[in-house]
Amino acid sequence: MSLTTKPSTTRQANRTPNPGRPKQSLRDKYGDRVFNIAATAVLLLSILAVVYPLYFIVIASVSDPNAVYEGKVWLFPSGVTTEGYERIFADSRIWNGLGNTLLYTILGTAISVTTILCAAYALSRKDMPGRKILMLLFVITMFFDGGLITKYLVVRDLGMLDTIWAVVLPGAVGVWNLIIARSFFEHTIPNELREAAQMDGATDFKFFFNMVLPLSKPLIMLMIMVHVVAHWNSFFDALIFLNDDTKYPLQLVLRNILIQSDVSSTGTTGGDIESYAAAQRIAELTKYAMIVVSSLPLMIALPFMQKHFTKGAMIGAVK
């Protein structure tokens, strides 16, 4: 009985404005409330700052370009048009870039994930002689690298310029990912399991492929996602290693259209200022639509990926 009544009395004591300690705690409660309101306000503003530009891009991409130009589009699209999207889907550069990106993403992810998982497992094995020195070889490259120019020259000497290999190989193994994978193996694969498997005659290969990998699905998912996102979004290796624009990935095509934009690509050849300005507005409209189309796949996949990325951050933090 006394146990159940006790909390209610303390709550009452807090509520009654006595002098002394309860007052103190009341003031703190007031301070906490102010803090809560301020924190929520700051976070809501941050959310707005992140979301509004993206929202604006989306509504601008379906609005009449003249309305956007005149600053009439703020909260809702006006004079809905799909011309921007139609132009994109009619643009062979985009389709070609998308195809290349898919190819580079699939091949690059497959190479990276396989290489990293195998190496990380080997490096996680405390009984592998030379493990520390080998690990050091990898870690050193995090703090010092040969730089852009020598990397370019090496890729050129390998005869990889203008080939798919120049896009998928030079950045294939990130040491940071390797470390994450290694600490995952160290923490989730118990030594006893391996000893038991070895007693039953399993070789390292067998153990790795039949036991370790099936136990490492979260890690494999994380690695796949990290690399898919990285390949989908990368442009720089393609910029320096590829000359042939039929091999450009989507991001490089986007860069050429969005940033190095040339009005000439919209098809007008000089003449009167009015049509020039109109062409320019259509070009802007196309840009909005292009931003939406190129970011949409990852944004849709984001809620699905979030869980894995958060887990990845945890593994990284543990390390």
């Binding site: 442009f235 969005l258 292009m290 984001l302």
Partner: peptide, 10 residues
């Protein structure tokens, strides 16, 4: 998750 290219484009 938005690429650098697209962010600069934005």
């Amino acid at each position: 998750f938005i690429s650098t290219v697209v962010v600069v484009g934005i």
